[in-house]
Simulated scan of single mutants.
Amino acid sequence: MSDNTTATALPLLPSPTVQAERLVELGVHGIAGLDAAALLDFARTAEGTAGAGALLAVHPDRAPASALAPLLRREDRAGFVVVDMTDVDLFAPVDAVADLPDAPLYLVDRPDRGDEMANWSPDEALPALTGQGRTPLLLTEGIHWVLQQPAALEPNHCFMTIGSRLRKANGALDARTPAIWISNGTGRDGRERRGAPKVGWCWAGNRHTWLGFGSTGGRH
C-alpha cells in the first residue's frame, strides 16, 4: 500500500430509485425482510427530498454487515469479512451517530471518503469530523456506498467507517475500528481474494496512509 496514486473524483450517486433497483437486483430487500415494492416505493417518494448524491441505506438491524459484504464485487471477486471479525454484526452506532433514523430505510446525505484525513488515526478523526458538523459512516452504510459505487474503493484510497464500534461488557469501546478496503491476497485472505473488497478492522490509535474516514452531513 505504498503507491501514492492520485484519487479519482467520484461522480454523484444515482437517484434513490436507481439505487433501490440495484438493491432489489442484489436481493437486499429479501435480506431485510422487505417487499421489493416497499423498497421501490420508499425510493420514489424520496426523490423529492433527497439531496444530490444521497445514499439509500437499509438499517443495520435489518441488513447486517455479514450479509451485505459478500454482495460486494471488484474485478469479479466477491467481498468478504476478515476471518478474525466473526463479531462484525455486533458493531453498533457510536454516540456521534445520533441521527440514525428509526426506520428500515433512510437516506444518507452525500457520503465523503475523507481522503484528506488519510494517515490520521480513528481517535484523531472522530473529534475532527464532529467538529466540522459531520458524522462518521456506519459500516453498513459504507458497504451500501460501495454496492452502489464500486469506484469508492481505489488502490491506496479506501476508507474507515468509525461510526460503528463494539462495546465491551463493561461499556468501554473495543479498540477495533471497521474499515473497507481492497485485499492484497496475502495471509489469511488467500491469494484467490487478491483485489476483492474487504471488510476488516484497524486499531483505534493507529494511522494508515491509504485509509480516509467515511462521513456524511446527516441522515433522514
Score class of each variant (00 low, 15 high):
Asp174Gly: 01
Gly79Ser: 12
Gly163Tyr: 00
Asp112Val: 06
Ala63Ser: 08
Val199Asp: 08
Thr45Trp: 07
Ala37Asp: 14
Asp89Asn: 13
Asp115Cys: 02
Leu211Gln: 03
Trp203Met: 13
Gly79Phe: 13
Ala92Ile: 07
Ala204Val: 11
Asn4Trp: 14
Ser15Trp: 09
Gly51Lys: 09
Cys158Arg: 03
Asp109Leu: 12
Arg188Val: 09
Leu147Ile: 07
His157Gln: 06
Ile31Gln: 04
Arg22Leu: 13
Gly218Pro: 10
Gly205Phe: 07
Ile31Met: 07
Ala179Arg: 11
Arg134Gly: 02
Gly217Ser: 15
Asp95His: 09
Cys202Phe: 10
Leu13Ser: 02
Pro101Ala: 13
Gly79Trp: 11
Arg22Gln: 15
Leu40Glu: 14
Val81Glu: 09
Leu56Ser: 02
Pro93Thr: 08
Val24Thr: 09
Ala7His: 06
Asn4Glu: 15
Leu23Thr: 06
Val199Tyr: 12
Ala54Met: 05
Thr161Phe: 03
Arg207Tyr: 00
Arg77Val: 14
Pro155Lys: 11
Ala78Phe: 12
Leu39Thr: 14
Pro136Tyr: 04
Trp201Phe: 09
Thr49Pro: 03
Val58Asp: 00
Leu105Tyr: 05
Gly33Val: 03
Ala57Leu: 05
Val108Ala: 01
Glu154Pro: 01
Leu153Gly: 03
Thr49Asn: 10
Glu154Tyr: 07
Gly171Thr: 05
Gly33Gln: 04
Leu105Gly: 04
Leu153Ala: 06
Ala98Met: 04
Ala9Ser: 15
Ala96Arg: 06
Ala196Thr: 08
Val24Lys: 10
Arg176Ile: 00
Asp109Pro: 05
Val199Ile: 14
Ala46Arg: 09
Asp35Ile: 06
Thr8Cys: 12
Arg22Asn: 15
Asp102Val: 12
Asp87Phe: 12
Asp84Gly: 10
Ala175Lys: 08
Leu34Ala: 09
Gly27Tyr: 08
Pro155Asp: 14
Asp102Gly: 05
Thr216Cys: 02
Trp210Gly: 10
Gln19Val: 08
Ala172Trp: 09
Pro197Glu: 01
Thr140Ser: 13
Ala63Arg: 00
Asn170Lys: 01
Cys202Tyr: 10
Gly53Glu: 00
Glu124Pro: 08
Leu68Ile: 08
Asn4Leu: 15
Asp35Cys: 11
Glu116Ile: 03
Gly217Cys: 12
Glu154Asp: 07
Arg219Tyr: 02
Ala152Met: 06
Ile31Phe: 02
Asp109Ala: 15
Pro127Arg: 00
Trp145Cys: 05
Asp174Leu: 01
Val146Asp: 06
Ala151Trp: 11
Leu129Asn: 03
Thr6Glu: 14
Ala125Glu: 01
Ile180Glu: 02
Leu39Arg: 15
Gly190Trp: 05
Gly171Cys: 06
Gly214Thr: 04
Ser2Gln: 11
Ala152Glu: 06
Arg73Asn: 14
Glu124Gln: 15
Ala46Pro: 04
Leu126His: 00
Ala118Val: 05
Ala175Thr: 12
Leu39Gly: 14
Gly212Ile: 00
Trp210Leu: 13
Leu138Ser: 02
